[in-house]
Design a protein around this nucleic acid. Structure first.
Length: 419
DNA sequence: TCTGGGGTCCTAGGACCC
DNA sequence: TCTGGGGTCCTAGGACCC
């Protein structure tokens, strides 16, 4: 059957979120920073026009930002997550099947739909009216081509934010115009490798023999090539598989050397990671702890290390994870280094009913364990205060820098805008 | 002189995505 | 001085099995 995919992608999503409750920022250059206020990760059109590239470290462009009065924001994921959920909910009205692909984009199954351009314009105007976020729509018989169509819808203003690539001739025309680096699935390494072989456009990539591409690259790239030729290889995935790992890591506002402070920070990451684990109703069996100094330091010696440990029995009890995390931390910590980042990774998940317990360390079936964790989670979600284990450190004096944070307009009573 | 064939599982590293 | 965080998938190679 002929498939039709639409990719709906929000324009400059984080910037659009910041503008929602600040109409004064319309037509004003806006930039949003990564965690710890490190790099620029979202730019309004005005900032793109200034030539400031994606992922530029903030300190490299402070002068330019002052000169052009760019409004800068720290990442406000509470806000972006909530706006994202509202956009997705609106999009669901337009399709029987939707895949939320990232915080700001979704694939819609529009197979069998007619008048695709008109329909897509309706999607755009509805999302803008209901949520206030501008989006672009790309339509094609494969996901890779839909991505490319969306890229064109954003790049070429005459398209009015919608590009329909159903027609093979149109596909070919756009492929010939598009640098190979813009193809979904072709990253930095593959780009330079392909360019070295004279494959500079998406069209040239599409024309390579699939056997050859499989030999020199991998099955992933073979799928990309087939998709560029209109053969759908990547299905819509509307029921995401359970997570396989959970990461909690941060760069520190100030570099840290003291083992006690670092250990407490690691405990904080571990506690947050296992909280996420409980949200998904899973148990973890492996814990990985890593710490590193800055890879950019010119004078400081570089040190990076990690350690992995296996719990005897799978668990989602914060105490089990903290015990393991502190033990692992103590095996990799070396004094006299100035640490810039640390984190905890949980893995080897299973569901409570399917856990394989150790014959010689049977799980003492203690319902109080789960109840204690439930009690802690509900207190911490109540909005009336936080409790934590002794090994953790209050976030105040080490947690990431957020100097330009906007209010949680839509998720906290005290931040509700007044009209 | 001459030393097989077929398989699984695990891990580390590298690529990619947003 | 100052450079993010959170994921997935694939492959090669080693250890092991009979």
């Amino acid at each position: 059957m002929n498939r039709t995919f639409a990719l709906v992608d929000c324009n400059n999503f984080y910037c659009s979120c910041e503008r929602l409750f600040r109409p004064d920022l319309k037509n004003v250059p806006v930039a949003v920073l990564s965690n710890n206020d490190g790099c620029i990760v979202a730019r309004s059109q005005e900032v793109k026009d200034l030539g400031i590239k994606m992922a530029t470290p903030l300190y490299q462009v402070v002068d330019q930002i002052k000169r052009h009065k760019v409004q800068v924001f720290s990442s406000n994921y509470t806000l972006y997550g909530d706006i994202s959920a509202r956009v997705m909910q609106t999009l669901e009205e337009f399709t029987p099947s939707l895949e939320v692909y990232s915080i700001d984009e979704a694939f819609l199954d529009l197979s069998g739909f007619c008048d695709l351009e008109e329909y897509s314009q309706k999607i755009r105007s509805t999302v803008y009216q209901h949520i206030g976020v501008p989006v672009c729509v790309g339509i094609a018989p494969t996901k890779t081509l839909a991505k490319l169509a969306n890229y064109a819808a954003k790049k070429y203003k005459a398209t009015q934010g919608v590009v329909d690539l159903s027609d093979p001739e149109r596909q070919k025309k756009l492929l010939a115009l598009t640098p190979v680096a813009e193809v979904w699935g072709v990253g930095r390494k593959h780009t330079s490798s392909l360019e070295g072989k004279g494959i500079t456009t998406a069209l040239k990539l599409a024309q390579i023999d699939t056997q050859q591409i499989r030999r020199h690259y991998s099955i992933v790239m073979e799928r990309t090539v087939r998709e560029l030729n209109g053969e759908s290889c990547i299905e819509l995935d509307n029921s995401p598989a359970p997570k396989q790992q959970i990461v909690c890591s941060r760069s520190f506002e100030k570099k840290m050397s003291d083992s006690t402070m670092l250990r407490e920070a690691i405990c904080g990451f571990a506690a947050r990671a296992v909280e996420k684990l409980r949200e998904g109703g899973q148990l973890a069996q492996t814990v990985n702890v890593f710490i590193r100094t800055s890879p950019h330091g010119k004078t400081d010696p570089y040190y990076s290390n990690s350690a992995t440990g296996k719990l005897i029995n799978p668990s989602s009890d914060t105490r089990d994870i903290l015990r393991m995390a502190t033990r692992l931390f103590d095996t990799i910590y070396k004094k006299d280094y100035r640490y810039a980042k640390g984190g905890v990774i949980l893995g080897d998940f299973c569901l409570p009913g399917q856990a394989q317990y150790d014959l010689f360390h049977p799980q003492t079936d203690n319902p109080n364990r789960d109840k204690l964790m439930q009690a802690i989670d509900s207190i911490n979600h109540s909005g009336q205060g936080q409790i934590w284990f002794g090994g953790q450190r209050p976030k105040k004096d080490w947690f990431m820098k957020q100097s330009h944070l906007s209010p949680a307009y839509t998720t906290r009573w005290s931040c509700l805008p007044l009209v």
